[in-house]
Structures are given as C-alpha cells and as structure tokens.
Design a protein around this nucleic acid. Structure first.
Lengths: 341, 341
DNA sequence: AATTTTTCTGCAAACGCTTGCAGTGCAGAC
DNA sequence: GTCTGCACTGCAAGCGTTTGCAGAAAAATT
C-alpha cells in the first residue's frame, strides 16, 4: 500500500502541534501521572484545539482487549429485557466500561450474527439474554475465552455462568392460586419461541393444571412477543370458542395485549376472566386493572450477571456456575373468583 | 514492547494451518472472488476448525472506517425512542451495517460521553435523538466529518441533517380540540428536560391556551420521563389543589402514568378529566381508556434519518438540510366534554 | 519450446495506538 | 568537576487487519 498521508486526526498530529512524541500524548490522554505538568497541559491544549478524539479501534487493538461489555437480548421492546439491559449498562458505566447491545428479535440468524459481532469486537464480557440458543453457538461462545453469562439457556460451561429462574415454581404457584379461586378452564398464552419443545413454562403449565384438576382441559395459544401478539392470541382464543375463566400469560407484556382484547369484547377482568402475567414489569402496575403476576428480580439478575462476567476477582473458571432464582407471586386486581358458567 | 507470541486467534494462525499467506486468508474472508476455489475452501475449513473470528478493531483500523451506525437516544425506556431505534437498526442490518446505541438518560455528561464514544468508534453515520444538546457538542459532531442527523435539536450544519416535528402545530391542534370540548382549566405535564427555556412544547402550550381562552390559567407539572414520573406529576397536581379538566402530557408514556394516578384517586377518564398524550406509541392503543394523542411517524423518521446519514448517493454537504414533519391528532377515548364544576 | 497472457498468491507497508526499554537532562551529592 | 539518581520523554516494535504491487504459476498462444 502506498504511503497515504492520513487526513484523519491522529496522535501524531497532536504530538507535532504540542512538540512532543506520540508516546507522551498517549500517556497524557491515558492519565499516566508520569508526565510533567507543563507538558501535560500543552498536550491537552493541542488535543483540544485540534478537536482530537482517540481512535478506539486502534486503542483496543494495541491494548489487546476492549473495554466493552456485550449484551444480546431477544426483544428490546419487551421491558423485561430492557430492565436487565439498563442495570447492566449502569453497572458497566460505573466501572468506565462501554456497552454494546444487540437485539435478535428471536431470529436465530440474527443471534448468530450478534454473537459473531461480539466476538469480533473482543468484548471484555458478554451477557446473553435470549430464550433459545443452539448448542453449537453456545460452544462457540464458550470456546472464545470471553467470560459470559447466559440467562435461561444452556448449561454451565467453561467460562460461562448460567442464571436461571425457577419457572416451574412460578407457574405452579400461579396455577395453584387460580385453582384455589375455583378456576378450571385455563388457557396459556405464549409467544412463538415458547412453543419449542424446550419451553419450560408451557410444559409446566400443562403439568400443573393436570395435577390440580385432572378433569380440566388446558389450552395453548400464541402470538409474537408484543402487545399486538397478546391481543392476537386472545382473539384466537375467543374465536376458537374456548371460554377460559383464567388466562396465564408467558409474560406481562403480552398479558397487557390480552387484556386489551378481552376488554374490547366486553369481558370484564377479573369478573369474567382472570389474567396473570410473568416478570412483574413496571407496566403491570400501571395497566388497568393492575396485573397479578410473578415477580422476577431483573435488577438482581442484572447485577449477578455483571458480577460474574466482569467481577474484579474474576478468575478464569474451568467450569461455570449456575445460579437459580426463586420467583414470587404478586397478587393484584386482574384475578378473582372464577366466574360461574 | 517485547515480542509476545499472541495467544489470540488471528489471520496468521489460519494462514499457517491452511498453508497460505494472511493476504489470501483475508481475501477469502472478504469474499474477494479472485481466490482459486480450492484454496478458498482450504482456508474456510481452517478458519472453521480454529473457530476463528476476525478482529473487527483491526479491520476497521486497516480499512480506515467502520461499518457501524451510531445511535444516541435520551431514554430507551420510552417506546418513542425505541421505535426509532428499531427502524434504524432494521435499515442498517439490511445493508450489512452494525449498530451501536447509547442511552443518555437525559444526562448531559452521558451525552458527552456517548458522542465521544461514537467519534472514537469512527462510526459511519450518527443519529442523535435527544431533547437537548449544547451548542458546543453540536459543533464537535459537525467538525468530526461524520454524517449525522439530529432529531429535534440544533440547526442544520455542515454534514448534519436536521429532522424536526412541528410540535407547535400538534399542540395547537390538541388545545383547540380540547377547547372545543369546553375545557378551560388545563394542565401540562412535562418531564424535566422539557422545562428548559427552549422547550417548544411547553411554551406553545401556554401560548395556545392563552389564545383560546385568555381567562384560563394553565398550569405546568413535571416528573421524570417514565410511568412513575407521570404518576408523580399527577399526584403533585392533585395535591396542589388544581383541578384541571384536561391534562396535556408531553408524551404518551407519561400520560399512562398520569392516568394511573387519576384512576387511583377515583377520577374517571374522560368523565372527570380528559388526558392527552403525544407520539402515538403502541401502548396508547392498549391502555385503558385508549389515549387521545398526536401521531408522530416514528418509522418514517427512522427511515429519513437513515437515508440522510447512510444513503448511497450521499455526497458530502457543506450545509445540512432540514426536514419538518407534520403531526396529526388521533382522537380516542381518553378525552371528552369538559366536566361541569 | 519459447513467449505472452492470465490468474492467483505473497510481500510488506500502513492504519493509529500502547508500552518496555533506553535514553536525556538536571538536581543534588561527593 | 564528576557522578548518582530521579523525573521525564522518545524510540520503535507490536496489535491484527487490508491492499497495491510485484512475482509465481498456470494457461494460452506462437
């Protein structure tokens, strides 16, 4: 490549202007205390005047690592993911780390692309909050030597921490609670990715209903993970003629959509139908009626992930650890005694 | 620096394993058609087996530019920003660009940090969707030679496109509509950043009310830009003893919080109080009652920003352009005839 | 078989930064 | 005046890519 005089601003330009070497400029910009005060201010002045901004790519390259925390989530639109993201971001900023997020929209090719992006960026740590992941891809992450934490997917591995919520327990509590209120005809509303064979929430729902009242015939409906998706699922249920007295939703976000459709059809909540969610997002308190749900401590999860991925005394672990979180039922106004039919 | 044999996987390792030079590997990985098919597959196999992932920092450095679109928003929690982000992300991915988002939380030091991050990353384009920005910082962006688009802030400059919504018109339509319904005692609920002297929405609200009914005494309340913030502002209003018959909110997100508090206090919407929002986010249709609001075409805005920042035939412009969008009033069920008092 | 052309591949410089090491200069000690 | 030590600063190699150019190999032409 022919020597092309760079137009871009670089250390060299600042160094020349300040009459020092690039090393010195570098040291000033990195706050190395070793530089003489007078030199230091000369350099700072030059940098300021030239409107200089260090090239972070070059910096990462030279340092051999980046100061970036990578985060991958399924759906930023769902406040559940957003809350975890925000906690991670806050923790990262508190330590002077930057953050880059990728959103997969539940698409596996996007998940692949996101993982490759993070590895390509040589992120200092990686948090993966998605509902499904191919074993192959898990291995890729594990083999990348990047400290990672997975939420709700895979099993502990080299360099990987696993955080999971005991959904089984959450679902059982909910079904038990509804059963005690006399509900027999229950429906489960999931989103498409909860339809996979591995969907613990869906499976547990069926089992729990089965156990509580063997005569009941639980039904499953689904839509995309969005307000509209919940609404669609509810409409589907109504059109199918199935008259549930209680609807368990896979998360609060969809539950809000479900309630909207029920209301639209003139059904009152909880008089005619009870509705429950999962996650206990802020919106669950603000919708009408406030939603009975299962609390998942998203902030706590965020902090745990951060500590495990970026924690100070973090030694390289051969085998990862697994952390299980216990969810709690939060009763509000969207549930009540089963309607007589 | 002493020669340290790199542990990290790099082009060289792949090259050795495949028995070719790094140049060839590079060409294969970049899909340069020039490589012989047999060599090509040998290289791909080696890369696969070594679980190799190119170092994107090195790549950007060598290429002198990155394939990244930078996005800065005030508050990812507010679906308004999220929607624009998602549109931009989709457009970017469609062109094989990656995206990095930064969230300022309305904090100006965070905004500064975010701008520096983006410049440091040498992003290919930058979208800034924040409600306030110091002139100095605008100049920094303008001087960075990065094609940028600002939403709702600053004025067109070198390399900078400006998109703004005619809030004035939106507010006027809303106030006019409420006035026609007989509302006299109106309140405006803003978030803290709309309290600055430059807040167009707030100012226009005061002017419009003034004009429609000179005798009215409009009031202003505020909280953070969140569901809770809306709730707080509403509580503040109730505690102040001011009994508005209509409340205009600076956005839908806060309006949902406002309605929650009113409901809590036993006030019925719209029988006792009318409430309006701004933005027309999805949630506005899903809350109860569905919210009367002003539609801001976020997808369109996203596309416009993308085209102006990353558009193909994008020549370097000395002076930026300004694009103004006209908002429409969307009437739903949260507004009605003013209560007699 | 010699030459020309074409197709591939490798060499090495460059991208902008960090950092170990080797100075340089200057104060104080001898 | 020479020396020692200390506080700074500069040199240059190295980080992992890309890519212009030139060389090598293969194919086509004479």
């Amino acid at each position: 490549m022919r020597k092309r005089r760079s137009l871009a601003m670089n250390l060299d330009a600042v160094a020349q202007k300040a009459g020092v070497s690039t090393s010195t400029v570098s040291r000033v910009l990195n706050n190395l205390e070793i530089v003489k005060t007078s030199t230091r201010s000369r350099v700072l002045k030059a940098a300021e005047e030239l409107n200089y901004h260090p090239n972070l790519h070059a910096r990462s390259l030279a340092r051999g690592k980046s100061r970036i925390l990578g985060i991958i989530v399924s759906n930023m639109e769902n406040p559940f993911f957003l809350d975890i993201y925000r906690t991670l971001e806050a923790d990262a900023h508190a330590q002077g780390l930057e953050v880059v997020v990728a959103n997969t929209d539940y698409r596996s090719e996007q998940l692949l692309a996101s993982v490759q992006l993070m590895i390509g960026l040589r992120v200092a740590g990686l948090a993966v909050i998605v509902s499904e992941m191919e074993e192959h891809l898990i291995q890729t992450v594990s083999g990348s030597r990047i400290p990672a934490a997975f939420y709700d997917v895979g099993t502990p591995q080299k360099n990987i921490t696993n955080i999971r919520v005991d959904y089984r327990k959450g679902i059982k509590k909910t079904v038990g609670y509804l059963n005690a209120l006399g509900h027999k005809r229950m429906a489960f509303v999931g989103h498409h990715s909860t339809l996979g064979p591995i969907s613990e929430r869906r499976k547990t729902f069926l089992e729990s209903v089965q156990r509580c009242s063997p005569s009941a015939e639980p039904r499953i409906f689904a839509g995309p993970d969005s307000l509209d998706g919940g609404r669609q699922a509810a409409r589907e249920m109504l059109e199918s003629g199935f008259r549930a007295t209680a609807i368990l939703c896979v998360n609060d976000f969809m539950a809000v959509g479900v309630m909207r459709e029920l209301r639209e059809e003139g059904l009152q909540i909880p008089r005619d139908v009870s509705v429950t969610g999962f996650d206990n997002i802020k919106l669950a308190e603000f919708c009408s009626p406030p939603l009975t749900t299962v609390h998942i401590p998203r902030e706590q999860i965020g902090h745990i992930i951060f500590d495990n991925v970026m924690g100070n005394g973090r030694e390289e672990r051969e085998v990862g650890r697994e952390i299980v979180i216990d969810p709690e039922l939060v009763v509000r106004d969207s549930t009540g005694i089963a309607a007589k039919s």
